[in-house]
Each structure stands twice: as C-alpha cells, then as structure tokens.
C-alpha cells in the first residue's frame, strides 16, 4: 500500500510508490549497481530506474515547465542515453549516478525545449490537461507566484536559445549546485573549460534577462 503525505509547501498530495526489483539491489551503492548492470543483472535495471526516475522526471519537468504529451518519450529517451553511456563505459564513476543522470537529462530537456519553442512558432500544439492545471498556491501569495512563474518561463526560453553547453553548465552549477570539478566531469571537459562556459553562460543569461521582453512574433497556424 503506497504511503501518502501532503506537501507542506504546495499542499499537494505526495505519494511514495513501491519500486520494483530486488530489495538488495536497491540498497547497493552506485558503483555496485553499475557493476551489476554491466554484468547483465536484470534486477539492476529495476533498481537503476527506481534510483534515477526522480532525478530524470524532476529535471525534465523543471526545464520544460510542464508534462506534455511527449513527456514519457523524453523520460524513455533520457534513460536510453543513460543506459548507453553505462554500456559503453562512458560513465567514469567520477561523480554520483544521480548527477550523471541529471546532466544527461538536462541535455535531453534543453534539446526538447528548443525544438518545442521552434515548433510553437509555427504550430500551436494542444497542451495536456494536467499541465494546464494550476498548482495550488496560497491566496495571499498569488502575485509573487505569478511573477516567479513568468521569470521561470523567461529563463526557460533563454536557456533554450543559448548555446547548449553553456546552458547545461549554468543549470548544473547554479541550479543543481554542482561545483566546477563535478560540472567538468559531468560534461566531459576540463575544469578550465567548464569555468569558461559558466562565466560566459552567466554573462549571456544576465544580458538576455536584462533586456525588455520581446513581444511574441508567432506565425500561428493550426496543425
């Protein structure tokens, strides 16, 4: 029976779901889990999914802003990328598995966000019903919440327009709190290159966000 609780911030019901796979596999460390996965242990697949689904789903949601129709595809695409990097031994185990998954998912999400923005310039896509539902917000804080959401939307648009390497570096460092060494390991560059990307990405983001918002120039047309 899943346990449930209510979020103290949003008041939304949070639910703990029982994950599949072996309980012993779920208690493994990252390295042991990767070893068992590489050896072909089927239980390791379940444990890997349960360990990373929160990171993958959360990163996708935060960068894209909502769960749209292709959300499940993006989750699957992110896990495919993670599995491929593990089978090709590109995961050097220099960072945590969750951080590695977040970096990969950030790439997937920003790429989807860019294509989504480009697509919406010419095609108006219907949004999922759940994505249109307003999150529960306290009545006395509506104005602040609207302002924050607008800032988030603006930030997402800027991140999608930026160079992907810089956008991911800024998100990993300033958003997820990884230090430069971790960012360098996650993006497979030197620390100096990661620092350069971070500085340039911050400058570009600051410059973009200091400009007055541009009126949308959409060419709408029904699919």
């Amino acid at each position: 029976m899943p346990a449930s609780a209510r979020s103290p911030r949003t008041g939304r019901v949070l639910r703990l779901e029982r994950g599949g796979g072996d309980a012993a596999a779920r208690s493994l460390s990252d390295e042991e889990l990767v070893d068992r996965f590489e050896q072909g242990d089927a239980c390791a697949v379940d444990a890997l999914y349960d360990r990373l689904i929160g990171v993958v789903d959360g990163t996708l949601y935060r960068i894209l802003g909502r769960r749209e129709q292709d959300h499940a595809d993006l989750v699957q695409s992110s896990f495919e990328q993670i599995v491929l990097t593990l089978t090709h031994r590109r995961y050097a185990r220099a960072c945590g598995l969750a951080a590695w998954a977040a970096a990969i998912t950030s790439h997937v999400a920003l790429k989807a966000l860019r294509s989504r923005i480009n697509e919406r310039r010419v095609v108006e896509r219907p949004q999922r019903r759940d994505s249109l539902l307003p999150e529960p917000v306290a009545a006395d804080d509506v104005e602040r919440e609207v302002s924050t959401r607008r800032a988030f939307e603006q930030l997402r648009a800027h991140l999608a327009d930026m160079d992907p390497a810089k956008a991911v570096t800024v998100f990993l460092h300033d958003g997820l709190g990884h230090d430069l060494a971790e960012v360098a390991a996650l993006t497979d560059v030197s620390v100096a290159a990661a620092q350069s990307r971070l500085v340039r990405g911050r400058q570009e983001l600051r410059l973009r966000m200091s400009r007055p918002p541009q009126p949308p120039t959409r060419e709408r047309r029904n699919p």
């Binding site: 979020s7 911030r9 939304r12 935060r62 999150e135 988030f152 930030l155 800024v170 958003g175 997820l176």
Partner: peptide, 8 residues
C-alpha cells in the same frame, strides 16, 4: 536558475 532547480 537556483529557484527553478529546486522548484516543486
């Protein structure tokens, strides 16, 4: 960016 990353 930080607020976005820790948003619910």
């Amino acid at each position: 960016v930080r607020a976005l990353a820790v948003s619910v």
